[in-house]
């Protein structure tokens, strides 16, 4: 273990701490920490997967995703009929949310592409062919 700090003598502090541990007859162990970076998700793919997962409203919500237990009266009511409805509604709500997100994402992409197309068309009208040529393909070397 390393100690970091400008205002401390890290080596001496650590040494003293280790000596005291030894004197107390204690062995210290490091807790393993996973330091891998968080994943980066591609949004369109994620949303498609999320839509697939929530597509069928008859599939119950996984137990890990259910809310906290309700009060006794509500629980009785839910036992009777509400739980099914709740689950279906929850599924529907999510499905709708994902559809909205996907739509937002896709349409934003479309808007961006449309703006780019307009810029290119404007450049073409102005005779600025250079804008149309990028990116260039690498030339083949002539043989012989």
């Amino acid at each position: 273990m390393k100690l970091l700090g400008r205002d401390i003598d890290a080596g001496a502090l650590l040494r003293a701490a280790r000596e005291r541990l030894e004197a107390r007859g204690i062995r210290d162990e490091a807790l393993p920490v996973e330091a891998e970076p968080e994943p980066v998700l591609e949004p369109l793919s994620f949303l498609v997967r999320a839509l697939e997962e929530d597509e069928d409203p008859t599939v119950p919500i996984p137990a890990t995703e259910r809310g906290a237990p309700a009060s006794l009266v509500r629980r009785v009511f839910r036992l009777a009929c509400q739980s099914l409805i709740d689950e279906v509604l929850e599924r529907q709500r999510r499905f709708n949310a994902r559809v909205r997100e996907a739509d937002a994402q896709l349409s934003a992409e479309v808007i961006q592409l449309r703006a780019r197309l307009e810029a290119l068309e404007a450049a073409q009208r102005n005779g600025d062919r250079a804008a149309l040529l990028a990116p260039r393909k690498p030339r083949r070397k002539r043989r012989g």
Partner: peptide, 30 residues
């Protein structure tokens, strides 16, 4: 010493890079 800790402290305070609780207890004591 993770996340924003190192940049925030900028050498101030005391940061550690392993969770060795017995050792850290001695450091905290001091």
């Amino acid at each position: 010493a993770a996340g924003a800790v190192t940049a925030t402290l900028g050498g101030a305070g005391v940061a550690f890079d392993e969770k060795r609780f017995a050792l850290l207890a001695e450091v905290a004591m001091r």
